[in-house]
Design a protein around this nucleic acid. Structure first.
Lengths: 230, 230
DNA sequence: TCACCTATATTTAGGCA
DNA sequence: TTGCCTAAATATAGGTG
């Protein structure tokens, strides 16, 4: 087995840059957090409420025995000083809310567009990289690829030599010779593999022993939690 | 000293019977929970509020950026049927407006980030293309570049041959031979870009870490939390 | 209650399905 | 999104001061 996993990686305590990563990490760690909370509930018989506003504008909450009850108790102890200024008329108020809603919708659309843009660029970059697979360390290429590569490069080398001779002979601003690097003109190149069959060497990992940790679960039942409304 | 510690013991997920143990465990696990929460805040840029009623009838709370704000937002989304409905309508209204404002601000920030991201990707792409000049048709290359390229590729060709031989000799799943394509050994290649200077922009490593856990370091600053009043 | 120690028990990052 | 996998990073039980 060719070292399938590098195991858990250390991660800097900085906001994760990549959106997908952040999402996955959020998901995993949120469930971890809620699990810890539920364990604390059962082990120590305490009451806990957790509210999380996700990056995706969702609300997740955990509460034992009930969020509402806990919030009520908490608010009773720490009276909120909600701004009861009642500054403007009801109509004005409604207008404000509608305005904010409109802005929010619009901006959310912008976010969507920008995200698509970003993903598109990432995609392009990835393609561009896979197009440049020979840039990767040789050790990552398969034997077939290496043979192809060798043949192609020798052919190419000859072409280059000719080209160089041609240029030296002419000594004039290059008049666009009929040569292309990796163009379809070169049959050796036409069959070059693309970067994604690296894994030929992988040995199928068949692990009959299901001794892995996950067979016995649900020791600690999660006290009802779920995403909030809206 | 004979066996000072038996290490961490497994504990049943039931309420701990011994009072002192329960206290200690509560203390430890509460701080662990808050730490996890703060990590989640930092890593994923989310907002979290936690309220814990301890077995000793105390209240501990964690909140980033502020419990009050988070509770307001939560209550704005999940209208409570609090008995104290006296000022409820106006207060609730205010909470709603604040919620919308908060969302709006957050989303505007995201737009900014996404835009920067997009620009950054464009920039990288441009650089990457200019660095990948050998990908372009040969006709577009200058003499210097061609000579460079020829030398580099011939060297590479030799590497490939060696590599191939190695593989044929071994006939075993490649145990990572000590050969690299663009290693520093080849001076012609030394100036060629390696594929991984794309991401420089997101490496802001500010970590004065002292890795030992003992030194009481605030690596991940806990967004102000502490015991609530009473 | 908190800090520190050791030796384990858990969690989880990054890949993959 | 969720679940599974591996290997490494953390958390933490139990003990001591």
């Amino acid at each position: 087995m060719a070292r399938t996993s590098r195991g858990r990686q250390k991660v800097e305590m900085v906001k994760m840059v990549k959106d997908s990563n952040r999402q996955v990490t959020f998901s995993k760690r949120r469930s971890g957090l809620f699990k810890k909370a539920s364990e604390l509930c059962t082990l120590c018989g305490v009451e806990i409420a957790i509210i999380v506003f996700s990056p995706g504008h969702k609300v997740f909450s955990f509460g034992h025995p009930s969020i509402q009850a806990l919030l009520d108790r908490f608010l009773a102890r720490n009276p909120t000083k909600l701004a009861t200024s009642s500054s403007s008329s009801s109509a004005h108020r409604n207008a404000q809310v509608r305005e904010l809603n409109a802005q929010l919708t619009q901006v959310l659309q912008e976010v969507e567009i920008e995200k698509k843009h970003g993903e598109e660029l990432n995609r392009i970059r990835k393609i561009s990289q896979s197009h440049c697979w020979w840039e990767a360390p040789v050790r990552e290429l398969g034997l077939d690829q290496l043979q192809h590569l060798k043949a192609a490069l020798q052919e190419f080398s000859k072409n280059i030599s000719r080209q160089k001779l041609f240029l030296q002979t002419c000594s004039a601003p290059t008049p666009t010779p009929p040569l292309q690097f990796f163009g379809p003109a070169n049959p050796a190149m036409a069959t070059l593999p693309t970067a994604d069959n690296h894994l030929q060497y992988d040995i199928k990992n068949i692990n009959p022993t299901t001794t892995t940790t996950n067979s016995n679960n649900n020791l600690h039942l999660h006290h009802g939690y779920g995403s909030g409304f809206y």
